[in-house]
Simulated assay, not measured.
Amino acid sequence: METGTTLGRSFEIQRRVIGALLMREILTRYGRHNIGFMWLFFEPMLFTLGITLLWSLVKVEHVSNVPIMAFALTGYSSVLVWRNPVNRCNLAVEPNLSLLYHRNVRVIDIFAARILLEVAGATISFIVLAAAFISVGWVKPPHDVLRILEGWFLLIGYATGLGLTIGSLSERSETIDRVWHTITYLTFPLSGAAFMVDWLPQKLQHLATYMPMVNGVEMLREGYFGPPLKFHYDWVYFACVDIVLVLIGLYLAREAGKRVEPQ
């Protein structure tokens, strides 16, 4: 009973700490004026909607028999769910050093709050846009919601591991910040947001799935479009990448917590 009580109390403290950090992050970033915290999901909605409208304006209505609205929605929403959390974890500790003065606040709590916030924003954005597009008849309802959830959660796992890793490394050297932004621009066209693996030459299809996020996007699109389209992914590989990244990220976050000094 004592062990269960201790674990329950620890979980409650952890929940309250991350909850407080979430509220602080929302107020610091979005403030109390205008639409306030609604920018959390309104901002990613604008990005996805802007890309979708841009493709529509250039008269790209269908891409290889795939409706452009649904194609852009699934592609660019998936980018937001793995890119934004990592960007927000990058150099996240230094502005929050004073919070580490409180004995219940750890470096990993700062990362966790930012990851949860960005994932929530991207998820709400995706759901709201999908519901809006479906309601006005611009896209069809998804074929397999369960497969969409599987791909989405694997993308969240990737974002979590990568966010912890990049966030922890950026505290060791600011060079990581510059390198990461360069890597982001380079990986964006390779992430699967703007193409489907089946469109590639057969020799490149297997190579494309070595990019972890491509597997998540393909799963997401399989769940949305279903047959007769063909999709290529390896969810076991993607899950293993997620697990390795999360373990590395947790270790690095622990080391970062030992290195930093609260102010």
Score class of each variant (00 low, 15 high):
68 I>L: 08
184 T>Q: 14
40 L>M: 14
124 I>F: 15
148 I>Y: 06
209 T>W: 10
126 F>N: 09
253 A>C: 05
15 R>C: 13
168 S>K: 08
203 K>Q: 09
217 V>R: 05
191 S>I: 03
175 T>D: 13
186 L>K: 00
25 E>C: 03
195 F>Q: 04
133 F>W: 12
254 R>D: 09
29 R>T: 15
35 I>S: 05
207 L>C: 03
148 I>P: 02
139 V>K: 01
206 H>L: 15
148 I>N: 05
164 L>D: 09
52 T>F: 07
240 C>H: 09
101 Y>D: 04
132 A>E: 00
58 V>F: 14
233 Y>R: 04
232 H>P: 05
221 R>D: 03
182 T>M: 00
222 E>S: 12
109 D>C: 08
96 N>G: 02
239 A>K: 09
10 S>K: 10
49 L>N: 02
225 F>L: 11
42 F>T: 11
224 Y>K: 09
91 L>Y: 08
102 H>R: 14
169 L>R: 02
151 G>N: 00
47 F>Q: 02
112 A>W: 10
40 L>G: 10
28 T>L: 15
153 F>N: 04
35 I>G: 03
248 I>R: 01
149 L>M: 15
237 Y>N: 07
231 F>L: 04
197 V>W: 03
158 Y>H: 06
183 I>W: 01
3 T>P: 00
188 F>K: 00
129 L>T: 04
239 A>G: 15
64 S>K: 12
116 L>K: 00
54 L>R: 05
185 Y>H: 01
97 L>D: 05
145 V>S: 01
157 G>W: 11
99 L>Y: 10
202 Q>N: 08
124 I>K: 06
92 A>K: 01
138 W>P: 00
19 G>C: 02
192 G>M: 07
251 Y>S: 07
237 Y>Q: 04
263 Q>S: 11
4 G>P: 00
22 L>F: 14
23 M>C: 11
172 R>K: 14
58 V>Q: 12
104 N>R: 10
81 V>F: 05
49 L>D: 04
64 S>C: 02
71 F>G: 07
179 V>C: 02
84 N>Y: 14
122 A>T: 09
45 M>K: 05
210 Y>R: 06
224 Y>F: 15
2 E>P: 02
231 F>I: 03
234 D>N: 14
248 I>F: 08
224 Y>L: 06
205 Q>F: 05
163 G>Y: 05
123 T>F: 13
34 N>C: 01
206 H>E: 13
190 L>M: 11
104 N>W: 07
27 L>W: 06
235 W>N: 11
48 T>D: 00
254 R>H: 14
66 V>W: 13
175 T>G: 15
207 L>V: 12
161 G>Y: 06
248 I>W: 04
172 R>T: 07
206 H>W: 12
237 Y>K: 03
51 I>R: 03
46 L>Q: 06
9 R>M: 08
225 F>A: 13
252 L>E: 06
194 A>L: 12
232 H>Q: 03
42 F>W: 08
38 M>H: 08
166 I>P: 07
30 Y>G: 03
32 R>I: 14
15 R>F: 15
245 L>H: 00
63 V>Q: 08
92 A>N: 12
178 R>F: 12
56 S>Q: 13
75 G>H: 03
45 M>D: 07
132 A>G: 03
